[in-house]
Nucleic acid binder design. Structure first.
Length: 937
RNA sequence: GCUUGUGUGGCGGAAUUGGUAGACGCACUGGACUCAAAAUCCAGCGAUAGCAAUAUCAUGUGGGUUCGAGUCCCACCACAAGCACCA
């Protein structure tokens, strides 16, 4: 009987005592492998079952690579600054460092219990002054290069609490805690210039071996767009403003402009009559949180400034409005509005009754040569009472259509539509609802044997009464007038023009798709992309605009009014200048205080008067009392692991050059745009400064999935009965069983529910392996029957570990164990190979079995087993024989058989004969080693 | 709404460049061992019909390409994550 408790303890002590996993970081004779976990925040509740999943994956890789002859760096540390420790300090008055250290102890014990092969000599903590000395050092370099800036920027400010709040701390314009009003206000803040790195952060993604989904999230976050800046003059003044647009091709359709309420020009151009309204609106906008403003469900709001802009391409005067749907933080904080082709502008124009000019029409049908041009209408009449639409049904001669017709000379589309409705259906008591976008339609008319290209205006009417005149039909107009439901129309109206028009009738929205330009002078007839190119040339030629690239990525606000973070090494001098703490005075250590609460709206560090007030060369100054955000220390920790005790530089350059980048980085997907983006930015920056040898820190990134409760719901406070504590499992089933189970559950990246039956099964498998050795099934003689499955197992496990497909690697090991039981014996050679491939997964068990096999040294650095490719393939293969693609029989033959022989064998099978008798064999498809398919008629 | 994923037995999940769907495990059923139970070992196990051989159906839905589709293409549905007035 396998005593996992005793055995696991025994080997953990052995590894500790012998420093088995200590990495000689200066040994450059072997190739390096750097396997890294996202380090945890040491919370008060200890590890949860999600942690061991990712940690086991990297541990398996680290252990396999050691056996494959790599020098492996596999470190662990602590992301130790954070809110829970801060709250602990506030409520108890104790220093948060003590609390953090205690938590770290618990975490470390739990990690050791799980048998991870970390080199604890490399342990770091971001809250350790010897660590954050270098976080501060990097901050100084960022400041010197203008990446870290102390600038005025809009923030959520709560007067009552006297603090800046993040968007998620603001609900309905009030503070989450206390319910005090929150306003948007410009404040001096520390920030990082993320946009400066946008292009590189975007481009480098292409060559990173990262999950595509995470790359996509980062691309979206960076949000690159191509467009143009266009300058509009303000009518009757010498003022002008610039808008950014990705659709400069629609410039002829711009019917108004909108400035963000905070745009500096607003107060300069607002006319006297509109001043009150504009000022009120600005105040209102300021009192809204970012969250409220970006709530899409709400109606558009805005006010007219009284001023007009001149559209630079046609000199038309168009009104200038202000609205909070234009954000001052993006591009120029000003837009030209093209309601016909932009949904947001469309909604705004509808609400405030601003003109809508269509400049692009959709194209239906295929263009032909020698088409005749016409102007036409498509009229849709809606009967609200019966919820039906008026159609004419040509049956086999053309199907169901709406009323259509050609516009006569001197007739407007509306007049034409009314006339056609009367003539074709007789209905005369109708009312126009709205005019729909015009469509450019190509078609062939059978009755005239001619190709037409028409500009068709859609018109939506509603029926006011059933009043009807007599139809006036031509002789060839043999159709039925029918009222049809929406469902019938969607099914039966096949004509592209009519169905498209119906779509516009159902959805009152802007036309944002491609098409050809109309009402646009020199752009007429061009498609979207050609028109954009032509317009940009035009704008540049006439010096009224030019092409421009914009990014959505914003400044990273780099300050928090909290105690438990890295002090910003900056002194604000009385004379208004900013002085940096000298490098030799770093680290700037957090002072111990009596009270960790912020008072009177100030940061907690403001209480530390002695620490805060300094005098330099006779000039008084105050230290920055904000601290750095959580993501500061984690943005470069992967470098410090390489040389954690260095007090001269953040890490030895030669060592960094050898060890970076990280070969495998495993962690949760929730850090996609936080930590993973900031780390890349810092690494980019440090690369520029000659500190980092690489631009990108993480070569390969993998996200482990979430382990859900047995109820398939995220483990947490809501269902405490489904929360699984890894330490409990280690006690009841053992660390190896937990490691094995978490790797067997399914693909690493997938979310998977925990199963108590599953963990039992994993323990049984471990016992089943142990029994082979315990019952002395291991023999010195060899066993040919196991040869193939052994080589297959070594091959599959090696390959699957490499690609992190642990679940299938384990299933192959189970197949091997099943085969051993069937044979009743296991040759020693195979036993050793098997224990070796098992060892990364279940290291305690493997060490024990290795000892039982007569070795007195750790298995950690034994060489990885090899396999013989020739012994992996089967000599005899079972080939499926299909008839018309359905498997009817199988033949068992030598793998080297010729194609002809295989076909002969297949055809001679009794079962196959049954299917082919009296049938004509059309052809036979034979894929050697795979399949024979006989096609019969 | 947009982007990216994912849909396979009672359950977790396998399935190479398109080539025998359901590996492996759980649960379940039967057998061996036992006075008995547990543990262990062995065997069976998608659905429907049949004693069986076997046949038909089956990878979210509907089409398509192909000798052959879980896999490729088109449309749709459901779920998850991320983004969300970015002009």
């Amino acid at each position: 009987m396998y005593n996992f408790r005793k055995t696991e303890k025994k080997w953990q002590d052995y590894w500790d005592k012998n420093q088995t996993f200590k990495t000689d970081i200066r040994d450059f004779t072997k190739p390096k492998y750097y396997a890294l976990d996202m380090f945890p925040y040491p919370s008060g509740v200890g590890l949860h079952v999600g942690h061991p999943e990712g940690y086991t994956a990297t541990d398996i890789m680290a252990r396999m690579k050691r056996m494959q002859g790599y020098n492996v760096l596999h470190p662990m540390g602590w992301d130790a600054f954070g809110l829970p420790a801060e709250q602990y300090a506030v409520t108890t008055g104790n220093h948060p460092g003590t609390f953090t250290e205690e938590n770290i102890k618990v975490f470390k014990t739990q990690l050791k219990e799980l048998g991870f092969s970390y080199d604890w000599d490399k342990e770091i903590s971001t809250a350790d002054p010897s660590y954050y000395k270098w976080t501060q050092w990097i901050f100084k370099r960022l400041y010197e290069d203008g990446v870290a800036k102390y600038i005025d920027m809009p923030v959520n400010w709560c007067e009552e609490l006297g603090t800046v709040l993040s968007n998620d701390e603001v609900i309905d314009g009030k503070s989450e805690r206390g319910g005090y009003p929150v306003v948007r206000k410009n404040m001096k803040q520390w920030s990082m210039d993320m946009p400066r790195f946008a292009e590189r952060l975007l481009n480098n993604l292409d060559y990173l071996d990262w999950p595509e989904s995470t790359k996509e999230i980062q691309r979206n976050w960076i949000g690159k767009s191509y467009g143009a800046n266009v300058t509009f003059k303000v009518a009757d003044t010498d003022k002008e403003f610039t808008v950014y647009t990705t659709r400069c091709d629609t410039l002829f359709g711009a019917t108004y402009c909108v400035l963000a309420p905070e745009h500096p020009l607003v107060m300069e151009i607002t006319t006297k009559d509109n001043l009150d309204e504009v000022q009120n609106y600005i105040k209102l906008a300021a009192s809204k949180s970012e969250l409220e403003r970006t709530n899409l469900d709400k109606d558009k709001t805005g006010v007219f400034t009284g001023a007009y802009a001149i559209n630079p391409v046609n000199d038309k005067k168009i009104p200038i409005w202000i609205s909070d749907y234009v954000l001052v933080t993006y591009a120029n904080g000003a837009i030209m509005a093209v309601p016909a082709h932009d949904q947001r502008d469309f909604e705004f124009a509808k609400k405030f009754d601003l003109p809508i000019i269509q400049v692009l029409e959709e194209v239906t049908g295929a263009p032909r040569e020698n088409e005749e041009k016409k102007n036409s209408i498509v009229a849709i009449v809606y009967d609200e009472q019966n919820d039906k639409y008026l159609t004419i049904n040509w049956h086999k001669k053309g199907g169901r259509l709406f009323i259509g017709g050609t516009i006569k000379d001197g007739e407007s589309p509306l007049e034409c539509a009314i006339r056609e409705i009367k003539e074709e259906t007789g209905y005369d008591d109708i009312e126009l609802v709205r005019i729909l976008p015009r469509i450019n339609h190509h078609y062939y008319a059978y009755n005239k044997d001619k190709y037409f290209n028409i500009d068709a205006t859609g018109l939506l009417f509603k029926l006011k009464s059933n009043s009807k005149l007599k139809q006036k039909l031509d002789e060839d107009e043999a159709f039925a007038v029918e009222w049809a439901s929406k469902k019938v129309i969607l099914e039966e109206v096949k004509d592209a023009l009519h169905s498209k028009t119906f779509e516009y009738a159902l959805n009152d929205m802007a036309m944002e798709s491609d098409g050809i330009h109309i009402n646009s002078e020199f752009l007429n007839g061009l498609n979207k992309q050609d028109a954009i190119n032509k317009m940009i040339s035009y704008l540049e030629e006439h010096k009224i605009g030019k092409s421009k690239v914009n990014y959505k990525i914003r400044e990273w606000i780099f300050a928090r009014q909290r105690y438990w973070g890295e002090p910003v090494p900056v002194i604000h001098m009385e004379d208004g200048t900013i002085k940096l703490v000298a490098d030799e005075d770093l680290p700037l250590v957090l002072p111990v205080m009596d009270d960790y609460r912020g008072k009177h709206g100030k940061a907690p560090l403001d209480n530390a008067k002695e620490w805060k007030n300094v005098t330099i060369d006779g000039v008084k100054g105050e230290r920055e009392t904000s601290t750095m955000p959580g993501a500061a220390g984690s943005s470069w920790y992967y470098m410090r692991y390489i040389d954690p005790h260095n007090d001269k530089v953040l890490a030895d350059k030669e060592l960094l050059k050898h060890w970076l980048p990280v070969d495998l980085y495993v962690g949760g997907p929730e850090h996609a745009v936080g930590h993973l983006l900031y780390s890349r930015m810092w690494c980019n920056f440090l690369y520029d400064k000659g500190v980092s040898p690489v631009e990108e820190p993480f070569k390969k990134l993998v996200h482990q999935g979430m382990i859900l409760g047995e109820n398939n719901i995220k483990m947490g406070k809501r269902y405490p009965e489904f929360v699984v504590n890894p330490s409990d499992i280690v006690k009841s089933h053992g660390a190896d069983a937990l490691r094995l189970y978490e790797m067997f559950m399914g693909p690493l990246e997938a979310d998977k529910p925990w199963s108590n039956a599953g963990i039992d099964a994993s323990k049984k498998f471990i016992d089943r392996i142990y029994r082979i050795f315990e019952e002395e099934k291991v023999t010195d003689s060899d066993n040919k029957n196991l040869e193939k499955v052994y080589h297959q197992t070594i091959k599959k496990v090696t390959e699957d570990y490499e690609t992190l497909n642990f679940n299938t690697a384990i299933s192959q090991m189970m197949i091997f164990v099943n085969a051993v039981y069937k044979e009743g014996s296991l040759p020693k050679e195979y036993a050793e190979g098997f224990v070796k491939v098992l060892s990364p997964l279940c290291p305690h068990l493997a060490e024990e079995l290795w000892e039982m096999l007569g070795h007195n040294n750790t298995i950690t650095y034994e060489s990885w087993p090899t396999y013989d490719e020739s012994k992996v393939v089967e000599d005899n293969v079972v080939i499926a024989v299909q008839v018309n693609g359905k498997v009817r029989d199988t033949v068992n033959i030598s793998k080297d058989i010729s194609k002809e022989e295989l076909e002969k064998m297949a055809l001679s099978s009794d079962i196959i004969k049954k299917w082919t008798t009296d049938k004509e064999i059309v052809k036979i498809i034979t894929i050697p080693g795979k399949i024979v398919n006989i096609v019969i008629k």
